[in-house]
Amino acid sequence: MGPLITFYALALLAIVSAAITAFSRNIVHSAFALFGALAGVAGIYVLLGADFLFIIQIFIYIGGILVVTIFAVMLTQGIADVNVSNRAVGVLPALVTAGVAGGVMFYAIIHSSWYHARPGSATPTTYWIGDAFLGPYVLPFEVASLVLLAALIGAIVISRQEVRE
């Protein structure tokens, strides 16, 4: 019973915050509402026994990406009276896109064979994740870090004064 209540509370937090992010007319409110969405998802990771994923979600998404997003939003000019662009797209295309995407996801959820964890079997995962990264998955891991590094250098190069002029 306890886990169920916790799950629904966390899911509610994530969904309500995500709704505020999507529908709020104030772009700063949207940015701050991401906090609830990301924190709710982090809480669900805890319920799933993914301890390392939980803390990395908080570390990277809330501590890093969210803060940078808020920074970017705050540096935007005239954010108080911004014309929210997603209302201009129109209802019909949005409904079609959301319907198709939702349908595909629903189909996938229904028809995939899920891995069922045994209840109460949560064990520390950090060691095995580290082992996997430096063992069987070392190549994807290194390629991902190379891509990130390239993106970082690219961002610096693009934002340099000489390049922009």
Partner: peptide, 14 residues
């Protein structure tokens, strides 16, 4: 927690 020190630094950064 087995991720105690990470937890500590991640949460204080909030």
């Amino acid at each position: 927690l087995n991720i105690g020190i990470l937890y500590m630094t991640a949460i204080t950064a909030l």
